[in-house]
Design a protein around this nucleic acid. Structure first.
Lengths: 201, 201
DNA sequence: GCTCATAAGATACGGCGCGTTTCTTACTCT
DNA sequence: AGAGTAAGAAACGCGCCGTATCTTATGAGC
């Protein structure tokens, strides 16, 4: 019933534990890049990782969980907010670094995936905080408070809504636009909206 | 091979044309209300409308198209922007009316559907303009210009980005929050962001 | 080195929903 | 009345999900 001595190019070695897990998450990443999220299938991932579906389901309960794990592995970590002494420069640098975290994936893969995240109530929360462990909201607030201390903006304008404002606008631009907002868009958001507001009396 | 004289409660009458179409779209609306968008199935709609799937597919090419047709039928039309003489009141009234266009559907039905719209590049455009024939952006700009004429805000702050700002923020709040933003949220957006910005020198 | 619990890997299955096909049968138009 | 048109019923193929079953390689412990 079994199979005779393995033929030609077939693998016999059997990966386990972390090695196997890394291979799977890499496969997820590759499938994501090649087909986008909506066309990423569990069978496809299993095939690419040269393993089988049960192996996937022994580790992750469903497709979104698997993809989240892959994103968590491959997305650059949260970084300290810049501190250049100039609020606009700080914000621009920080926001751009956020936007380009997934640049090695094709645009519509990320877009499709993030749109799908919006469906799950629990995942929406993650989305709101910017998909990072330590919320970028805190970073934004820190930068703004420093600017207020320097007298560059009006401290009274700092509140939860204004703090997350740049994030909200960029998220919206990404969702509705379908592509990562350009540097120019980031600049407009800062110069036409965020900074004038923060400086208002 | 046929069936003998129709039994008991069974229907024999066969609807056609507009009558049938109305019945179908009503069924879509009801399914939307009962199960939400993601769990709305073509079979379900057909069953509820007491018809069959081919009838649906003869009229609409796929599920989203069918739902769009149903929304188009039942959604209240675009209305003239209010003009109370007070910018805040105008904006609040206008935005609230936009937000509550689909109030007779459960929240997550609308949310799920709109999230799906985001996938189609062509439909994203519709989304950006607020899902109405005549863009609410124009209405917002009109209200702001009137306020500037009255001296309530700084005319120099009116630009495409600030005009669509309230819309962008509410859309984002809806997408990420999963529910139609409360009146309080609308108030915060106006009082903490939009109005201070428009009044800034 | 041998034994054995563990988990990988292959395969197949049931389920569901989509969109389509085939065929019968009621209605409408002239 | 007769012919064309479209409704309705049923079933199909497809793709994918998530699970169950069984074999077999692998590493741990003796």
């Amino acid at each position: 019933m079994g199979r005779a001595a393995v033929g030609g190019s077939g693998r016999v070695s059997r990966r386990r534990g972390d090695e196997l897990e890394r291979a799977i998450l890499d496969a997820v990443w590759a499938e994501l890049a090649e087909h986008g999220y909506d066309r990423l299938t569990m069978d496809g991932v299993a095939a690419r990782a040269r393993t089988s579906k049960p192996v996937l389901y022994r580790r992750w309960p469903n497709r979104p969980a698997l993809v989240i794990a892959a994103l968590g592995r491959n997305a650059p970590d949260y970084q300290e907010p810049p501190d250049t002494g100039e609020l606009r420069a700080d914000l621009a640098a920080f926001l751009l670094s956020l936007l380009h975290r997934f640049d090695d994936l094709p645009m519509d893969a990320v877009h499709g995936f993030l749109v799908d995240l919006l469906r799950d109530p629990e995942l929406r929360v993650r989305f709101r905080t910017g998909l990072t462990a330590l919320g970028p909201v805190d970073a934004l607030e820190a930068m703004m408070r420093r600017a207020a201390d320097r007298g560059q903006i009006n401290a009274a304008r700092i509140n939860p809504r204004t703090v997350s404002l740049p994030l909200d606008l960029l998220r919206d631009a990404f969702l509705v636009g379908g592509v990562v907002p350009s540097d120019q868009v980031v600049g407009e958001i800062l110069d036409d909206v965020v900074l004038p507001l923060l400086k208002a009396p």
